[in-house]
Design a protein around this nucleic acid. Structure first.
Lengths: 239, 239
DNA sequence: GGATTCTTATTGTATAGACATAATGAGCGC
DNA sequence: GCGCTCATTATGTCTATACAATAAGAATCC
């Protein structure tokens, strides 16, 4: 493991010392000049090692003052939002997809609110059911803004799930996810084959490109059948 | 915005073209030499711009072949795991904390499973209630491995919430989070002041340092009172 | 044709030097 | 002591150059 590039080794060394607690928050990190001597390299190399640590917030750098280990930073993790087909397949279960309903319509008040539109344009409203081993796995309720994605009009979503089609055909610049728990309406519970009182995990995603709203999707997972798992691996940690 | 460092501007330009779809997946990115001419800078500067893009997976670089926009990358987001006190205060509500119970004991079978221990050591089991404007906001069920964190024995968790104390006193190297929806036991529902049928959002976190298990915490949020929000901001995007 | 070798384009890494920028802390005037 | 100025120091950025590593593609040999 010591055959990697020097600047990466320096970075790994430092982040290791921080993560292990040897250098607590607030601790002063040796100056570039000192590290340069310690590792017997040029200042550019040291700088290349430290710059990303500063960018990701593990350390704070101040001119003249020096570099310091950050105060306990916001506790953030990377969460992989599942591609449902991949997720089901990864569990070794056969994946099934079914389009329950789908039609274009002028956005109603609720559509406008969910998509965050400023006026009621044409939208495509879809309801799809994803299955694992035949059993309902997730209900997808999706709105696609046809003003922003007119080419979605000609796609047959009975064959391909809209998530995958959108991902590969429509670029987006930003997305917001919302994760919550909810007791869902009776109709939804019936489709998912759970009791109306069962807790469901609701994942909502809204994407847009520039000012244009692209799509809004709500994925409802039946109760305790599904967990979102996020593993935190701090900057510079070996895989 | 064009007064930032050149290598950051180059990086922003490129990631913008990728995110906007102008450069689709698989598209060949101009060689370092070309970008060097385009921006009138040295190759080092171009390299400093591109290297982080490769590290975060937005692009793939191959010697002799060139640099290319990655195939639809894994759909991952950064999720800020809340510090409850900060979260409540940020909403403009007064924050309240209460220790419901706490005692040291030898780990029982369930403790062993939750902490992932290999033998039943001494643990500190805590139940705490977090309030917003007096109303229950979250129930915290926490186990602290006293074999790994002996100094926790002398702390009065009636005054300070264990999360904050651990964060600032005990370094950790890895964490795993699990987010799910659940119908909680009657006793839990009663403490939270919700119906036993109400869906609750359950956030579990387990942290460890090296091989040592540090703590396991389960935060139960009453139903739809709380959303986890994750905003995706691709590499190089302006804040 | 197919396997092997050679050439070369392209990225990876590092150096030494230069100037810019920001902020600390010392010195100075009052 | 207080406020101002200024030298100093550490980081921020960039250049020009060098050599290494890799793999694509061309040339060669059989």
């Amino acid at each position: 493991m010591s055959d990697r590039a020097l600047h990466k080794r320096i970075r790994a060394d430092i982040s290791e010392r921080i993560r292990s607690g040897a250098w607590p928050p607030g601790h002063k990190i040796p100056a570039e000049h000192e590290l340069m001597v310690e590792y017997g390299c040029s200042r550019m190399t040291v700088n290349k090692a430290l710059a990303p640590l500063a960018e990701t917030g593990l350390i704070v750098r101040r001119r003249k003052a020096g570099s310091f280990v950050s105060r306990p930073r916001i506790h953030s993790v990377v969460l992989d939002i599942p591609d449902i087909a991949a997720e089901v397949t990864a569990r070794g279960e056969p994946y099934g997809y079914e389009l329950l309903s789908g039609r274009a319509r002028t956005a109603n008040a609720r559509d406008v609110a969910e998509l965050g539109l400023d006026r009621p344009v044409e939208v495509l409203a879809l309801r799809c059911l994803h299955r694992a081993s035949g059993r309902p796995f997730a209900l997808e309720e999706r709105l696609i803004n046809l003003a922003a994605v007119p080419q979605a009009r000609g796609v047959d979503f009975a064959k391909a799930a809209p998530g995958g089609w959108l991902l590969s055909h429509v670029p987006w610049t930003e997305a917001e996810h919302r994760i919550s728990a909810a007791n869902v309406p009776k109709a939804t519970a019936a489709v998912l084959g759970v009791e109306p009182t069962a807790a469901c995990l609701v994942l909502e995603r809204q994407t847009w490109r520039g000012e244009d709203r692209i799509t809004h999707v709500r994925l409802v997972f039946p109760g305790e059948a599904y967990d979102l798992v996020a593993r935190f691996s701090p900057q510079g940690a070996p895989a």
